[in-house]
Every structure is written in C-alpha cells, then in structure tokens.
C-alpha cells in the first residue's frame, strides 16, 4: 500500500481496522478480535525538508531512524527524543503512541513539535490539519489530537514537524541522592534551577541522572556550577559504561509508560517495589517507565488502579492498564472522526 487511495481502499474493506507501523510496540499493533491490521510501513519517505525552516514532512511509514539520520546530516534532531528509533519505529507509530524519551524534558514532547498531519477518518475521508510552518493558529489542531490516539481516531498518512539544531556537545552525569526520597528532593531542586537541562531522570535507588547539552567547552563549567548551587556531587559518566541510562531506555527493558508527577512517585515506587519491577522516572519524574512481563501485567494493572494511575503497555496486551482518563472527550470527537467505529 503505497498510495493514499490504496490505503483508503484497504481501510474501507474491513469493519474493524487497526492501522500499524513497524510493530515495534506489539501491544499497540494488534487487531481487535475479528478485526484486521492495516500496515502503513510501505508508505514511506521524507517528502519535504528544508533545514533552514526547521521543519520536515514525512509519510507515516518512514522510519524514525531514517529521519534522525537525515536531520543529523544537517545538524538537526527530534527534540522529543522518541524511543525505539533503532528498533525500526515509524513516524506514524510515534505519533499514534505519543511516546517521548528522556530528552523531552528540555523542550517538550512530540505534541509540542507536531505542526501538521494528513489523515484518513474512519470512514475514509482524507483530511489535512495544521500547517507546514512553525507557527500557525488557523483551524482546529487535529495534529495534536492524533498524538496518543493509538490509531483509534484516524489513519495518519503524513505529518509535518518542527525540529531544532543539534547541540555541539552533550554531557551526562549522575549524583547519588542516597534513597528515593533523597533523590526526589535533589531532582526537584534541580528542576527549579535555570540550568537548561536536557534530561533529568531518577532511579528507584535515588540516583539522579542528568544530561547537559550546549556549545563545546561550556558543559563542564556548567555542571560544576550546578553542583555547587544544589549542593550535590555530580560524576560525569562515560556514555559507554554498563550502567549507562540508555540501557534502560523506554521500549527495550522498560515497557510500560505511566504519567506521574514527583508527588506521586513515592507511593507508586512502593507498589513497584512489592512487585519487584524495574523502573525509572523520567523528565523530572513526569513519566514512570516500568519493565513488566506479560505475567506481571495483571498485578501492575491492579496496583495502578489503586493509585488512580494509568499505564500504556507497549510489549504485552492489554495495552491500556490501570485507570485511564475518561473517554468522554474522545467519544465526542469520534462522532466525526470515526462515525462507524471502524477504528475504535
């Protein structure tokens, strides 16, 4: 399927359809019982890229790895730091899953960088929302609505994004808060500093990981000054050491995303300790990433319910665990986006 027409025909040929990309998040790529999947992975290619505009447009099946490499060759990158890039994740899947990596801390998530989208509604209408310029307030912001929609509101065909210049240099460092409580406290002190951190993560043991990005030669003095301001000792970390945080990047070892806030971390972490699940708190503890096997999911689901938290499981079904936000608003937009319930 390499044209909007053929994708539309495939969409309309079945009563229940789940659009999918490369399938790097298996729990999100499964069809409903009796339904079918619609693969967008052959619909690929960067259709527009003008580095001087800080924008690109690409088809949904384009691999993030391809996009990242083209951007990098012009000194640019995706600031929301999507996971599973090397695994083959596609742009459409990134939008539909709405996932961000630790680098989202600095400038925001995917929702903050999507500018435009072309999509098919559940009943096969081709709609264009947003625009191709970095600033636009015209019409309803459909591109943002599609972020996190899990393919249940529309079939994303193409999207336009804002990108940023790559920093000249990056510096990773860790500081030991001694305990989860100590680490949380340090993390919150850091998050109030005008330090322009790129990443700010926390482990359950209370180790704070941060990443600075900026001009060559500026990072070591910045780290030094920051340490003195918050009264912490930062140890620069060689990115190749075994405890490199990238080894615990979302998607690989960590397969469940749970939106949280710092105030909710302590109780969540206690529950996860009981369940013996690996986890990491990203973006100043706005996201908990948890490693859970299929066997772990029912207990995790129950714990999240108790804590009034929701989770998205990427690896094992069911994808939606714990307490999800009310679907009331989604149900309203579905009347227009998917009147036949084909994508629901």
């Amino acid at each position: 399927m390499t044209t909007p027409e053929s994708i539309r025909d495939a969409l309309l040929s079945a009563p229940k359809v789940r659009p999918i990309g490369a399938g790097t998040k298996p729990a999100l790529s499964q069809s409903e019982p009796g339904g079918s999947t619609l693969s967008l992975s052959a619909y690929q290619g960067i259709t527009e890229y003008d580095p001087s505009e800080f924008t690109f447009t690409a088809r949904a099946g384009t691999r993030l790895e391809t996009i990242a490499s083209v951007l990098a060759s012009h000194g640019q990158y995706l600031p929301f730091d999507p996971p599973l890039v090397q695994a083959g994740a596609t742009l459409g899947g990134a939008i539909a899953s709405g996932l961000n990596g630790p680098g989202r801390y600095r400038y925001g998530g995917l929702r903050d960088f999507i500018l435009g989208a072309v999509f098919l509604t559940g009943d096969g209408r081709l709609i264009r929302g947003g625009g191709k310029v970095v600033k636009n307030a015209a019409g309803f912001d459909f591109p943002k609505l599609l972020v996190g929609s899990l393919g249940r509101l529309g079939v994303i065909l193409e999207a336009t994004f804002k990108v940023f210049p790559l920093p000249q240099e990056r510096l990773r460092a860790r500081a030991d808060g001694g305990s989860l409580t100590g680490g949380l406290e340090l993390l919150q002190r850091l998050s109030l500093q005008p330090a322009d951190l790129e990443c700010l993560d926390l482990t359950p043991e209370g180790v704070v990981w941060l990443q600075l990005a900026g001009d060559t030669g500026t990072l070591a003095p910045r780290l030094d000054r920051l340490g003195r301001r918050v009264g912490a000792v930062f140890t620069p970390v060689d990115p190749d050491t075994p405890d490199d945080p990238d080894r615990l990047r979302p998607g690989a070892a960590l397969t469940v995303k749970v939106p949280v806030t710092p105030a909710r971390v302590t109780r969540l972490d206690a529950a996860l300790t009981t369940l013996h699940l690996p986890r990491r708190y990203e973006a100043a503890a706005q996201t908990a990433w948890i490693g859970a096997t299929a066997a772990d999911l029912p207990a995790l689901d129950a714990q999240l319910h108790q804590l009034a938290l929701g989770g998205l499981s990427l690896q094992h079904a069911p994808a939606r665990i714990g307490q999800w936000p009310s679907p009331a608003a989604e149900n309203i937009v579905r009347q227009a986006f998917d009147p036949d319930g084909r994508l629901a």
């Binding site: 609505l145 996190g148 939106p259 949280v260 936000p325």
Partner: peptide, 25 residues
C-alpha cells in the same frame, strides 16, 4: 452542559490529546 476533564497534572498523558484540540478552538 457536559463537564470534561482533559489532561492532568503531568506533562505526559494517555490517549488522544483532546486538550491540544481544545486549545485554539
């Protein structure tokens, strides 16, 4: 007259970004 809750206290969320749609409507 229906009351809707969109988003929350975290910068991360689950499900379609209805809040993003509401902004600028």
């Amino acid at each position: 007259g229906e009351i809707l809750e969109c988003g929350g206290e975290s910068v991360e969320s689950l499900g379609p970004d209805c809040l993003g749609l509401f902004c600028g409507s």
